[in-house]
Simulated scan of single mutants.
Amino acid sequence: MREAYFASGRTLSDLGTRVPLAKSKLSELLRGIGLYPRWEIVCSLSVLLDMPYAPLYRLWRQAAIEAHKSRDWIDRSTENTALTTTYPAPPLEHRALCELVENDYLLYAQAFLPDDDQRDSAVSDTFDILWLSWNDGLGSPDIRRFAWKALRATVMSRTPHIDGRPSLSQAAFDTITLKSLTDEADRIDQMAETLELFRAMSWLPAAQLDVMVLRVLWSLPTERVAGLLGVPPAMVRSHERHAIHFLESVLCPPETEGTPL
């Protein structure tokens, strides 16, 4: 909404004459500080800034729940706003992209958010964010890369972190290798190795981590990963090589020669 405000050329004084909110409070809202805004305020601004209604409302409602607003507060915040059950459809290209990547986005989100509701919500919110910023995405070098950045930011904002690193431990239980093992002893041994691997993976740079999650955890082909990230296949292979080199140095360090005194 702040970006739409800057692009509109409007001033706070102009908005203040059309929105029932003091100019200082409008400034706080557009800077993302202060109290969580009622929907009627956000809706009024969305009309003035020509923002899509449906994705903004869904994001507002989800964020209100995450901010621990009660259902009663949410309902009261919308009672003075005419809600409609028919929403304008997103751009055709947006819908096509979402249909193309949805299943793979869900797999990525599941690696960090094992709860189904959290996973589905993260992907749904990503698509709404993408709809709101669609023109920016079209103006970017690659719409697929733009969309992936939106997904990653959304998932990471909800992922538990340990010492600043995203936790992948729960994802170890979903690996294809483990699911293929039937012997219990083999499963236990593999589980220990997998947990150690994912702990080490959390140290990887963002691009290498994403490639390893998609390639190692879900065994997606290189070309498919490249399409999701919006980068050439050669870059995916490079990220994978560097990541494997780092992981091998951590998990299988070279033995030191001689015996220390």
Rank of each mutant, 00 (worst) to 15 (best):
W73E: 14
T159Y: 07
S249G: 14
S124Q: 13
T259F: 06
E93T: 08
W134L: 07
F6H: 12
W60H: 15
V101H: 12
L48S: 05
A89I: 03
A153E: 12
L181P: 05
E102Y: 09
R119H: 03
Q208N: 12
Y36A: 03
L217S: 10
E240F: 09
S121Y: 00
D128V: 02
M156W: 04
I244Y: 04
G9F: 10
T177P: 00
L83P: 04
L214N: 08
P20Y: 01
E102T: 08
P166D: 06
A111S: 15
K23C: 01
E102V: 03
S169C: 04
E240R: 14
A172G: 15
R144I: 01
E223H: 09
R224Y: 05
D72N: 08
V123N: 11
P233K: 09
P91I: 04
D14M: 03
A89Q: 14
T159W: 06
T11I: 06
R95C: 10
M1A: 13
D174P: 00
A111P: 07
I176Y: 06
P88F: 04
T177M: 12
I129Q: 14
Q170I: 02
T85Q: 10
E193H: 06
L204E: 03
P233V: 10
T86D: 09
L168Q: 11
T175F: 06
L26A: 09
T256I: 11
L251D: 08
A22K: 15
K25Y: 10
A185M: 06
D125N: 12
E93P: 00
T84I: 07
P91H: 09
M51V: 14
Q170A: 15
L21R: 11
R237G: 01
E223Y: 03
G258H: 05
W203T: 13
A243S: 11
V19W: 09
V123F: 10
S219D: 11
A22N: 11
V47E: 12
R215S: 15
A64L: 02
L181D: 04
S180G: 01
D183K: 04
Q110K: 14
D14W: 13
R165T: 02
E255C: 03
M235L: 12
S238A: 13
P221M: 05
L209G: 09
V47I: 08
T17R: 15
R38Q: 12
L138G: 01
M1W: 10
C43W: 10
T84H: 10
P91G: 05
